[in-house]
Design a protein around this nucleic acid. Structure first.
Lengths: 172, 172
DNA sequence: GTCAGATACTAGGACATCCTACTAAATTTC
DNA sequence: GAAATTTAGTAGGATGTCCTAGTATCTGAC
């Protein structure tokens, strides 16, 4: 049955700590911590996205599409205009078009004309979509969100510190 | 000149805090913090990647390609095998092929046969590549890394906590 | 009321990431 | 030493993100 080798092998040393040393060695002390923080962010993102996508694979949705489903699931009518989806998820409009195209092809959502604004399109969760959203959430909660590999305290710290970060960046 | 409207508008409320409330309201308390942490990670990544890419745009390299250049810049000979690049940056081999293809097309690196292993390919930084890496670093340091929008203490916290996170995920 | 400007969405394209599959070369096994 | 396995790299395809451009519709200024 061959290889259980991960697609990307592990490393002995932390490459970010190494980069930080290099930054300091080159006299860029004042930027070294910021570089390390942002690079850490990139890696952590990559790791967790991969984990989430693995759990979602059986449901045949990506995390991007799952987020759309949950947004609709939480909305009162189970329907939102495209633009609202983009704003809430903070992604480009064309990314929403892309995600909704695929969700619609999988019969998880349906496009409807907006009742008062003929420019706009409402995206409505189908019954199938709602069921899938619930099942996918149960899987993510069980396999990823409940145990991230950090202590409860550290998890709260991440939320808080990244919250500051997002706020200072003008995210909300 | 028209619109200075950002491509993605800002929000009044924090959508992650809202999602956290929804999680708790649905009885998923034990997963709520983990969900918020991972979602925060996704957004923070997006924000900082955009910032970095904006600074790098004038140099006509992406962050992915910049990372390859810096890795070579820090290596003793200014040359590394493809596989080593993938391992250090923790990206898939095919992503390295992609990045090196573009860097080579821009004459920033050069592919060379490995002296002892005929399967392997060395990637060598060109003079142009080295100069560009230094200039791009100066720009990133000045415009992004030195001031991330957080206090120096918070920046260190991010590095530390995400470091734990990466470690627990088996990143190194 | 008209018309200019803003807003909602889609189309097409550039990149980055991953995956599977394939070739060539090195290493390990027996 | 020959065969099986592992490793290095590339090709082609899927998905996601962004950007620019273009159409349709709504809003607000006059």
């Amino acid at each position: 049955m061959a290889h259980m080798t991960p697609a990307i092998p592990r490393l002995a040393a932390d490459p970010i700590a190494e980069a930080h040393r290099q930054w300091v060695a080159h006299g860029w002390e004042s930027a070294a911590d910021g570089m390390a923080a942002i690079t850490s962010l990139m890696r952590a993102h990559q790791i967790f996205l991969a984990r989430v996508e693995t759990v979602l694979r059986p449901f045949e949705v990506s995390f991007a599409r799952y987020e759309v489903l949950m947004l609709l699931h939480f909305s009162k009518r189970g329907a939102l205009p495209m633009r609202t989806i983009g704003s809430r998820l903070q992604v480009h409009q064309t990314s929403v078009t892309n995600a909704v195209d695929r969700l619609e092809a999988a019969s998880l959502v349906k496009r409807l004309p907006h009742p008062t604004d003929r420019r706009a399109t409402l995206v409505e969760l189908t019954r199938t979509g709602r069921v899938l959203a619930e099942k996918a959430t149960a899987a993510l909660n069980a396999e990823v969100f409940t145990d991230t590999g950090l202590s409860p305290r550290a998890v709260k710290d991440v939320v808080k510190t990244l919250g500051q970060l997002r706020r200072s960046a003008g995210d909300f």
